Amino acid sequence: MPINKNAYNRYLIIDRCLQQGGRPWTIQDLLKAVEEDYLETTPDKNGVCERTLKGDLHNMKLPTHHNAPIAYSRRRGYHYTDPEYSIHKTPLTSEDLLILHQSLHTLKALRGLGLADDLDDLIQRLERKQPSAGAATNSILQLEAAPEYIGTEYLKPLYKAIREKTPLVMQYQPYREEQASSEVVHPYLLKTYNGRWYLLARNEAKGPHIQNYALDRIKGLSASSVAFQPTDTDFSTYFDHLIGVTIPERDSQVENIRLYIRAGRAPYVLTKPLHPSQVTVSQDTKGIEIEIYLIINQELKSRLLSFGPDLQVLAPDSLRDSMQKLLNKAVARYH
């Protein structure tokens, strides 16, 4: 069972006391030490009772916790039978190693992203520590991992530039352009969407509006001599009303979008909402009507198109008209 933070803080204080083997430690001595140290750093101002502290001493001795060699005698009080012991030296348990073994599958999914050159070495060192008996050999948890997309080699230099606030000269070729152009950008954030990496940055020539750049369209990077331009954009809320990564320079207001979804697809939308703002307006045997509050962008339209005939845009009219034009173009390709 995981150890909560407050209990672990008490364990550290008890450990520090018991390492001082030159004096006997009674339960009252330990309580006083905990109250003097623990209450200064812990929000719980109710104090620690003797029962709690005795429970801590018991738990510290458990193999699933720290397997601490704690003993008690009337002459020596509470003490470590091994004077060299400390919970800071506690080796990983077999349960810890099994958890790490399963975690390796998640770590390995990051190997191809270039964010940490030492990650492979870390994984190999962890694998050498796996328990041989009873260890899980097959993954029981698999995450969808992005393949080796073009452009992931730029993740590490972009991450470094963002952290060090370094403007960059970027050779960038949009999908519809035949040649790359040179652009000076002030990098702010790396983000994934739909299995693809994007850089969010300010373009020196285009002003403060945040631009996004797909990493697979970057053709080269170098440092720029211009002064870095910080942003006051709060990226913790930037995507609250977005699907995808794009906020249009025009028409960027949040819209109340009403959708009707046929009964066959309705359970998928109810159990996996299109967006956290989703609200069910009505529901019957034929389908459901929902509302979402989003900025309309191309990523949203692509998501709605993926529903095919099972979805109808009810409002706003601008999105309804846009979707109708896109669907008419799609139908025309089959004539």
Rank of each mutant, 00 (worst) to 15 (best):
G264C: 07
I243Y: 00
S277M: 02
I247N: 01
R76N: 13
P91E: 09
A135H: 02
E153M: 03
G21V: 03
D317E: 11
L259F: 00
L314F: 04
E177V: 11
E289A: 13
Q171G: 11
G220I: 08
L18S: 07
R23T: 14
R74L: 13
Y159K: 12
D117A: 15
A133S: 03
L300E: 00
Y238L: 08
T52Y: 09
F228V: 05
A227N: 14
H101P: 00
L62I: 07
K156M: 13
A205L: 11
E50N: 07
G244M: 03
F307A: 11
S224F: 06
S222R: 13
N4M: 04
D82S: 10
Y175T: 08
G264T: 10
L30H: 07
E183M: 15
K156T: 07
L113Y: 03
L294I: 00
P208L: 09
Q283D: 04
D284Y: 05
Y268H: 14
L326D: 14
D240R: 12
E289Q: 14
M1C: 08
H88Y: 08
P309G: 03
D232L: 13
D251S: 14
R258G: 00
H186S: 08
R16A: 15
L311H: 04
D232P: 04
Q179K: 14
V245S: 02
S73D: 02
I70N: 02
D310S: 08
H105K: 05
Y11E: 12
Y193I: 07
E249M: 13
R125N: 08
Y213K: 09
E35N: 12
Q253C: 13
A33C: 09
D44G: 02
S224L: 08
P167Q: 13
I288M: 06
L190K: 06
Q171A: 15
P83H: 09
K206Y: 12
Y334N: 06
I257M: 01
K301E: 11
V254N: 04
R74I: 06
E35Q: 11
